[in-house]
Write a protein that binds this DNA or RNA. Sequence first.
DNA 1: CCAATAGTGTCTATCAGACATTATCTA
DNA 2: TAGATAATGTCTGATAGACACTATTGG
Lengths: 237, 237
Amino acid sequence: MDEKQFLAEYNKHHYDSPLVTVDAVLFTYHEECLKVLLVERANHPDRGKWGLPGGFVDLEHDKTLEETVRRKLKEKTGIEPPYLEQLQSIGNAERDKRGWSVTVAYTALMAYQACASHISTVADAQWLALDKVGQMDLAFDHQAIINLARERMRQKALYSIIPAYALPEIFTLPELQHLHEVLIGKALQKKSFRRRIEQAELLIDTGKKRSEGGRPAVLYRMKQSSGAYTFVRNLED
Amino acid sequence: MDEKQFLAEYNKHHYDSPLVTVDAVLFTYHEECLKVLLVERANHPDRGKWGLPGGFVDLEHDKTLEETVRRKLKEKTGIEPPYLEQLQSIGNAERDKRGWSVTVAYTALMAYQACASHISTVADAQWLALDKVGQMDLAFDHQAIINLARERMRQKALYSIIPAYALPEIFTLPELQHLHEVLIGKALQKKSFRRRIEQAELLIDTGKKRSEGGRPAVLYRMKQSSGAYTFVRNLED
DNA sequence: CCAATAGTGTCTATCAGACATTATCTA
DNA sequence: TAGATAATGTCTGATAGACACTATTGG
């Protein structure tokens, strides 16, 4: 039998395959807190519980897994996040009551303001402070996935400024530093933090400043390429 | 409807789901070369082409995705690799002629000797030098997956000694250094390389030596925990 | 002895940590 | 002026790069 004939006769429904979903851990930074976007499940299983935005691949319309995630996130936030990276896939027989299931999990970052208005129109989606999420009983294994995402983002805070994607386009250095401190879980030396970012020329001075009860802080914007930059030397763990 | 009833009536065959496979990029180091294990495909599609070891999840017997990979690798090599880590999932409508397909790709490392005898009994599996693999026309998108795995391993060579899992249990420092040099693609300072490994106490001196036409090299063994160790400062890229 | 390979000594450059000091705003 | 927050000056310590040097084998 040649390949053409094989494909003509191939019917995937003859083979048992796992369920395939995508899930996104979308972080943001607001009011000095890390927050994650959660969605109240409208359907079984785990109906009524909160969980990560995500869902099944639409074989008709999605060309890639990433398109599926982007579509799902846009439904909930109104926009596509400026940072989206695959985190890990989790697949086993236990994680979904419907049967053997694989989820491809993504980590995403966006500014709180960028979608605040849209989210307020979607009753079932909400930003929740990460500290509180830890106490909740989430759907499926979403708690574990959030922990994975957080740990990965903590690592990135040590050797990149990727967390900046969780801030508005224009931000101050003290803001970025505090976000890194929250992720890493300890205070950083401001001199060290500024120095490495200055030397690598990762930010653009907008010329504007923002006052916050003391000396005004310079407002910066990320360079296009700065997300890809990694420092050769990490901050202390 | 409650959840129990929902699950009783749930039939996943009513929903279209992508095909799910796993693939492993298994590297080793032999004769001063990086090699990758490839398998000649016995079935359509791409029958006769070489590709990565892997295949479909067995919903009956595999409890997790990682079990699937371990099973597949054991079939080809006779053993389970000492290093196995998820690389990335690739899912889109184009990569498999049978339709929308997701593969969960893993990177694995093992010693060449550990499975040389078994592989010689499996006619369709073979170690191929990575340089030559680049010229081949592999099945599916396996060429791209190999490139991803190689790039990831290159990064790890800059901040860890994970590549050591591609060596026999007992090895010399010059061997490990050369492996890192092949991965990184440039010569390293032996002083720097030795110093950081010594200071981090990652290896155990076996007390034995191996002669290679000059001064004999000390034979080392990895500590249990050394795979998890990351240097705070990377080697130069 | 020489050639070959393994391993060391030591200087320099870079950069993060620590922390004191200065700058610039508001009340 | 005082208090708050932002930004800088400057010293120290850790560690990678460079490269010359010594050590240990076989022929």
